[in-house]
């Protein structure tokens, strides 16, 4: 595992990379892909992260936010070959996050999946724009969040298909789950379509866990906190599917479980 504490170029050469960002100032990161690669990026400390990536090979990137203080990130990805980008965010820390992510599908047959799994006890704001800039491109957004007491979630998710990007697809699903009254989630799904021959969809739900579900679980002896923990884990665990490395996947699953236990059992 390598630690990053200053401006860096990350080269993805086909070997799995595990990096930790630990900086007390703003940093700039550039990601260059030389071969199909998986990258795990743990954020422990940073004020603001500016990241630029030119994606020319299939690439999976998982950002795991472990920061104890507020961070802001601005990320730009340009997919300039018929490559597939899979970028995922695990946001289960106890600090605010402001994240702006733009992905430009700038080559025919390129595709991108952006997914977030968030356990929210603080304030998290995500601005996401996926743009189909060339024909036959495929953009997918999946946001899953559990909003806990005192948590506030804001997601503005835009799927944009430009004129000429024929036979492209843009789909998004955003779901936020809460357990009590008074928790706040705002999700704005937007589709900006400037081409006729395309497929696009969005699905969104914000809701409280059914009282009957909680009654059922509690009737087996589980407290409300234990129910919250189990449901949250089931809701957010699929984020670890982003990573195929079995050791890292298990580590992440354990970490997610630990974070959820910490936040839900408080």
């Amino acid at each position: 595992m390598m630690r990053i504490n200053d401006d860096t170029v990350i080269e993805l050469t086909g070997v799995y990379r595990n990096l930790t960002i630990d900086a007390d100032h703003d940093i700039d990161i550039r990601i260059d892909t030389k071969a199909d690669t998986e990258l795990f990026l743990r954020i422990e400390r940073a004020r603001r992260i500016n990241s630029d990536a030119d994606i020319q090979h299939n690439c999976s990137i998982l950002f795991w936010n472990d920061a104890k203080e507020k961070i802001e990130t601005v990320e730009n990805y340009r997919i300039s070959s018929s490559a597939d980008l899979n970028v995922a965010y695990g946001e289960c820390n106890g600090a605010d996050t402001v994240r702006k992510t733009e992905i430009l599908l700038d080559h025919e047959h390129s595709s991108a999946l952006l997914s977030t799994a968030s356990l929210i006890g603080t304030e998290k704001k995500y601005d996401i724009v996926l743009t189909n800039n060339k024909p036959r491109t495929d953009a997918q957004i999946r946001n899953y969040a559990v909003v806990l007491n005192g948590g506030k979630l804001m997601i503005d998710a835009v799927g944009k298909i430009v004129k000429g990007a024929r036979k492209s697809e843009s789909h998004q699903v955003s779901r936020a789950l809460s357990f009590e009254e008074g928790q706040s989630a705002t999700i704005l799904p937007e589709l900006l379509i400037d081409e006729n021959d395309v497929q696009a969809s969005h699905a969104m739900s914000i809701g409280k866990v059914e009282e009957k579900d909680l009654f059922y679980m509690m009737s087996r002896g589980l407290s409300l906190k234990e129910c919250t923990k189990l449901i949250s884990l089931g809701y957010l665990l699929p984020i670890t599917d982003t990573i195929s490395d079995p050791t890292l996947k298990e580590t992440l699953q354990n970490e997610l479980e630990r974070k959820i236990s910490e936040l839900c059992m408080m």
């Binding site: 059914e210 009957k212 579900d213 009654f215 059922y216 679980m217 087996r220 002896g221 589980l222 234990e226 189990l230 449901i231 884990l233 089931g234 809701y235 665990l237």
Partner: peptide, 17 residues
């Protein structure tokens, strides 16, 4: 009418119980 609890496996549920 037992409830369906999506995302929670029987084993996790029962072990916790």
């Amino acid at each position: 009418y037992p409830q369906e609890i999506s995302g929670v496996t029987n084993s996790d549920f029962l072990r916790a119980a």
